[in-house]
Nucleic acid binder design. Structure first.
Lengths: 192, 192
DNA sequence: GTCTATAGGTGGATAGAC
DNA sequence: GTCTATCCACCTATAGAC
């Protein structure tokens, strides 16, 4: 991976995403972004005229990266369990940074956000949930998993556990909440 | 319940709590509070000199109400399942309002909050988690529940599921996420 | 307890030069 | 693309009269 110096819009999106995950969309300013990369706020407005543009671009990119990560997992992993483990690992990486999911943060701020951003957040959760449900469902058909309820409900429960687990770890730094959530989740999939 | 007209400090705390649960601590102002009860911002500062005072009082009250609710559940309910159902119902009531847990909201904003408020949020989660763990543990001892892992892990997972479920329902209005979380949770406690 | 008035700071955003 | 300069709205907070 070459990873040359990024263009300004992407550097701004990187910074904005970090700040969303650490402080929330309403708790950072163009000044924060500008200062971090050594330009002025007016220059940030050149790339993203209003903050809603920045937010919408951030969500689109975040969602695209989720899609890419899920495709990568589907390409690489063999068993349903290893796929789900890799998926959960994405959130555990976030937890390790002391951050929360960008879309979880944005969902908490929902009432204060423009409609376009609200829709993007909704879409992110739906994609994640559907991927989990499909992966569980495939595992059940293959005889790898056995669960009491419908796969869609297990998927919703896992996603809720991951989002809430990040919140709990944020409130109580040092705890590995997601490790516990993961363990409990896999217990519900075990064949008896 | 007489429910006479409340004193100003409590009316302010009621409003502030609603706004925290709907918009977040950094997304409402003294002007919002003052306007809602027909006084001026300077008068709000009389009751809560700085916003941190308001936030700390809000959290203390929220935590005390949790304790009271848990004590009430312990007094009234017979089975472990009915206790847990009543506990979950507290969050389902919040979900029905389209709101999230005040402490979940505050945890998401953690980095922007004064230390005193951060500690209060941490305490809220720990109390909730410990009550759940004890209730599950009692149920196991009584032969009412049977679960694969330790009660403390089931407790953490439930609390995470409730907090995250509120986030998911906030992002996707109309969905009854917590009903799903509840159903999946009780499945993990069923004797085989 | 509540008010008027105000201070000092920060926010998002724009115009126009370079 | 980036800058300087500026606008206006909002926020938290305080002083002092009533």
């Amino acid at each position: 991976m070459p990873m040359a110096t990024q263009d300004t819009p992407n550097r701004l999106l990187d910074l904005a995403q970090d700040l969303v995950q650490e402080r929330g969309f309403n708790a950072f300013s163009y000044k924060d972004l500008a200062g971090a990369i050594g330009i002025k706020t007016a220059s940030v407005h050149y790339h993203f005229p209003v903050k809603e543009d920045l937010g919408a671009a951030l969500i689109t990119r975040y969602r695209d990266r989720l899609d890419a990560a899920l495709a990568e997992i589907d390409r690489g992993a063999r068993s349903g369990k290893s796929k789900l483990r890799r998926f959960i690992q994405l959130y555990r990486d976030t937890e390790a940074c002391g951050a929360i999911c960008a879309c979880g943060s944005l969902a908490a701020d929902r009432e204060t956000l423009p409609a376009a951003m609200q829709d993007g957040v909704e879409d992110y959760f739906s994609r994640a949930e559907q991927w989990i449900a499909k992966t569980i469902s495939d595992g059940v058909r293959a005889g790898e998993f056995e669960l009491a309820g419908p796969p869609t409900e297990a998927a919703t429960t896992l996603l809720a556990g991951l989002q809430g687990g990040l919140i709990l770890s944020r409130a109580r730094p040092g705890r590995q909440t997601l490790e516990v959530v993961q363990r409990n989740f896999f217990r519900t999939l075990e064949p008896s």
